[in-house]
């Protein structure tokens, strides 16, 4: 029942009814609620829950919100161009992606297993044997298509990595280094910025020392294969590389193509996990 001659009490208006539960709130009160200095405790009773919601909106950042820094830093370093590594392919729905990844891994596994079995048995004609051997033994041409993912997966997984999980990235190293450099050479502003950046990554100013103590020098960092392994999502690729190839050369290049496939994934997940742990 609606219309100009219908009494308010008979109007079908859900919003009206729910608003009637709340005493009228003046505009100035609402304005003050949005001020940066507003505190829920100061809010009048009917507005207290709203003030709490607004306070939650303003809450300190969580780790995931600070996880995309490597991408931004890369843009900064490259003057506003995104290195290939950071361009994420358009995402397929997660289930489809997982399925495809699993099928790809399975296909590679089957192919590699079959070829290696036959090859190592020496059952192929010589030419084919050579091709197969090159395919298994030296897929370098293939892995060259993705020159960046391995090292960058290692560095991007690392910096977000919390002290507890052994941060191994150049960005984490860079934060610690920048702080030390600022202490030695910088002015107060530079020192303050460096410390706060570092504290954000470490999960608090009191954790800075432990965080930096756990950051290895990039030159001494773990081999790409292992570092990529930190991002557990690249495990399928890694498993293929290790379980079905016998030669060291094959191992490293398979590792390369494995992380190429999982590279984008590894970046994202590595960051997220790392920061969750960092809190």
């Amino acid at each position: 029942m609606t219309g100009p001659d219908v009494p308010d009490s008979d109007m079908l208006n859900v919003l009206w009814r729910s608003r009637a539960d709340v005493p009228h709130i003046g505009d100035p009160v609402l304005d003050s609620l949005m001020e940066p200095s507003a505190r829920p405790a100061d809010a009048a009773d009917p507005l207290y829950p709203v003030a709490e919601v607004l306070a939650a909106l303003r809450a300190a950042p969580d780790g995931a919100e600070l996880a995309g820094f490597n991408r931004a830093l890369a843009a900064f370093r490259y003057g506003g161009t995104t290195p290939e590594v950071f361009v994420r392919p358009r995402r397929r729905p997660a289930t489809l992606r997982r399925l495809l990844r699993a099928r790809l891994a399975a296909a590679i596994a089957v192919a590699v297993t079959a070829i290696s079995a036959v090859t190592y048995a020496g059952a192929l004609p010589a030419a084919l044997q050579r091709v197969a051997h090159e395919t298994i033994g030296a897929p370098a041409a293939h892995s060259n298509g993705h020159p960046h993912p391995s090292p960058s997966a290692a560095t991007t997984a690392g910096p977000a990595g919390p002290a507890g999980r052994g941060p191994a990235g150049s960005a984490a190293y860079g934060l610690c280094n920048a702080y030390q450099h600022a202490l030695a050479n910088g002015n107060k502003t530079e020192q303050g910025m460096a410390l706060r950046n570092l504290a954000a990554a470490a999960g608090g100013q009191d954790k800075v020392s432990a965080f930096c103590a756990a950051v290895p020098h990039p030159g001494a960092s773990t081999p790409p294969g292992n570092a990529v392994g930190h991002t557990s999502h690249t495990a399928p690729g890694k498993a293929v590389g290790h379980s079905h190839t016998k030669e060291p050369k094959a191992q490293s290049s398979s590792g390369g193509s494995g992380s190429g496939g999982g590279g984008g994934n590894g970046n994202g997940n590595g960051n997220g996990n790392g920061n969750q742990g960092a809190k």
Partner: peptide
């Protein structure tokens, strides 16, 4: 980069939200 990191850290959470 330190300064950029500081700017980023200050604004990115708000942008994301």
């Amino acid at each position: 980069e330190t300064a950029f990191a500081y700017l980023w850290r200050d604004a990115n959470p708000a942008l994301l939200r």
